[in-house]
Structures are given as structure tokens and as C-alpha cells.
Amino acid sequence: MPGPVAIRLENLTKTFGRREKKRIVAVNNVNLDIDAGQVYGFLGPNGAGKTTTIRMMLSLMRPTAGQIYIFDKPIRGDSAVLRRVGAAVEGAAFYPYLSGCRNLEVIARINGYYDAERVDRLLRQVGLDTRARQRFRGYSLGMKQRLGLAAALLNDPDLLIMDEPTNGLDPAGIQEMRHFLRELIEQHGKTVFLSSHLLNEVEQMCDRVAIIHRGQILREGRIADLTQAQPRVKIEAAPVDQATAALEGHYTASANGGTITVDAAREEIPAVLRRLIEHGIEVYEVTPQRESLESFFLKVTAQAAAASGDATPQADHAGLEMTSVR
């Protein structure tokens, strides 16, 4: 039986510009159902519509068309359900002249959930307790992100929406954030919706992902299902050029240094090896490969760019700002 739905987007559309010629469709008829109790990744190149979608989910922007439901309640007209949501959108934004602690106090008081003990506890949890009295303007990028996380958790939300939560964090900070978010799910039953450019992080943190490109959802599903759709095997063999030639016409294979990568399912591996040996190729090592989320993402977005007739599909990739933290 499926769990409760934390977020439901129905035909969500957002256009900017009134004149026909200048109209930009930032989000185009997006439909998504996100079950509660999971970490959900929202991926896309810069300008794909991720932040616009998140802003509409938080009532910061009005959708041009469509409907958003949070825990089965529509947010248009009655945003009371948003009190169950915590969010950090597009970087931490606070008053530079106030301390971290005072910033949290001000937010909690105005939003109607002030609890001094909770503020102190959250500052401890995000590792800012010793710098809590320092002005926000003196914080490093990592400290700002931590304060943003604390602010998002002030109301003990059931749904946490994070836009690039690991930006500016060092590797240890990223790992802490990952553990922190997983703990929220596993021990406290929260739902986390996050957008990130750090695809390796998303792969480690998220249960499911959606890939958005030019305002449209290209793929959605469990990461394991998406990346196993095209199984691969890496074969260390010699001579490589002859090995590639032996497989030509039967399998998709590409040479890379002393290895070849072959698109083949597990059950096809014996046939591939037999073919190589029959052609006198020496085989030293065979490693089944799972496609990384990063390469899957690049492939899917490149295909979408090509299909939409973009003459320079690589331009999208240039804007990815992807950082590998392997």
C-alpha cells in the first residue's frame, strides 16, 4: 500500500513575461507525486526550473496554471499546511547585522513558533553554538548554510525542502549534512525534498529523483531503476582495438585506455566473453558496471537538448556546475 503523499504537483506551469515574444515557460506542465518518508532529489541544469518549482511549492510564486498539494492539501488560497514545511531556498538569507542566534529568534517569533530552547538546540546540532552570538555578516559560506538548515528546522517540519543544501560545505560538512538528513528520515519520519548539483551526493542521499530540463520532467523514479536501465560491463582486454572490432555490430562498445565498456546485461556477459575469446582476444578482468547518476543525468539532458533541436546541446552541460566529490 503506498504511503501518504507529501507533495503532489498537478500540471504545474509557470510562465514569465506577458508579451508573446518575450514569454518564457520556466515550468511546463509538471506532474509529480512524492511519497512521505523519503529523501527525494530534484535535478536539473541551471535554468531548468528547479528553483521556480520550489518557490511555487512554498507560495513564494504564484503558478500560472496547475495545482500544488502538500500533505493532500492545496496550497493555493490556504497556505496553513505550509506551517508543516521547513525550507532553505537558494542559499541562506538572513539579516547581516544580527547574530545567528538573533536571526533564528526573529524568524521563529514572526512565524509564530518561537522556543528559545529549540533555537539553542538547533544551533548546537548544526555546530554553530560557539559562533551563535557572532554577526551573520562574518559567517563563512558553510556557516551560513548551517544556519539556513537550522532555520528550516525551527518549526520541526514534517517536510523539509532544501535547495542546494551542501553548497559551500567542506567534505566533512557534506558528510554531516548527509547523515543529518538521513537521520531525519529514519529516526523522525520526515520527508526531504532537495535539489542539488552534487549528483554523487544525491546518489548517496536520495531514494528517488526527478530530472527536470527546460521546465519539463524528463525522468522520474528510483535511482537504482533509472541507472540500471542500461547495464554495462567493463572489460580489461588486449588488444583493445581488436576487441572493439570483434563486438562491433553485436554490442555497443567503446574503448577507453586498456579497457572497453560494453552495453550488456548480466546474462549477456558469457556471450560477450565467448565472442572475444573466439577472436583471440586476451581477457584479464570483467567488472559489471552500474551507470552513475551523473552519466545518466548527462545522457538524458543531452538527449533532451538534441531532441528539442538545440544546435549546441553541450551548452546545457556547461551550465551544470557539477562537482564530483568521489
Partner: peptide
């Protein structure tokens, strides 16, 4: 200041805009 510091987003989801 709320626009310049980008801080409206800390309140708008949780409070009615008229109240703010």
C-alpha cells in the same frame, strides 16, 4: 531591506502576507 537581504522567503511561506 527584506528584498535586498532576500529575507521575505523566511516568512512568506508561514505567515499571511497581509499580516506581515
Amino acid at each position: 531591506g527584506e528584498y535586498q537581504f532576500g529575507t521575505w522567503k523566511n516568512f512568506v511561506p508561514h505567515r499571511r502576507r497581509t499580516t506581515l
